[in-house]
């Protein structure tokens, strides 16, 4: 197990009340596994999580994108810039 951070933005940040959360993770893992771990530790994210994407090293990930230790992770709710 290793400790990793996930950055939160906008509504996700508001739901958790923090700009990032810390998770214990077995690396290597995948984006979908990380999202499952995230909702287990932060159930307040449950309504929003199905609508979010994970970004791994500032790239949008798909469910099966591999995630290794040391990657920068962020949860991306539906965007609304412009």
């Amino acid at each position: 197990m290793a400790t990793t951070k996930i950055l939160l933005f906008a509504g996700a940040r508001e739901l958790v009340g923090q700009a990032e959360v810390t998770l214990e993770v077995n690396f290597p893992t995948t984006a979908v596994t990380l999202k499952a771990a995230l909702v287990a530790t932060h159930p307040e994210l449950a309504p929003l999580l199905p609508h979010t994407l994970l970004a791994v090293d500032t790239q949008y990930a798909t469910d099966d994108t591999p995630v290794s230790a040391g990657s920068t992770l962020a949860l991306i709710p539906p965007v609304s810039g412009g």
Binding site: A10, V79, S80
Partner: peptide
């Protein structure tokens, strides 16, 4: 596609992230 988010500040005093 670009990770930027808008928060509405409504005249009734409420605020709302737009997702």
């Amino acid at each position: 596609h670009v990770p930027i988010w808008k928060q509405e500040h409504w005249a009734d005093g409420s605020q709302e992230w737009v997702h």
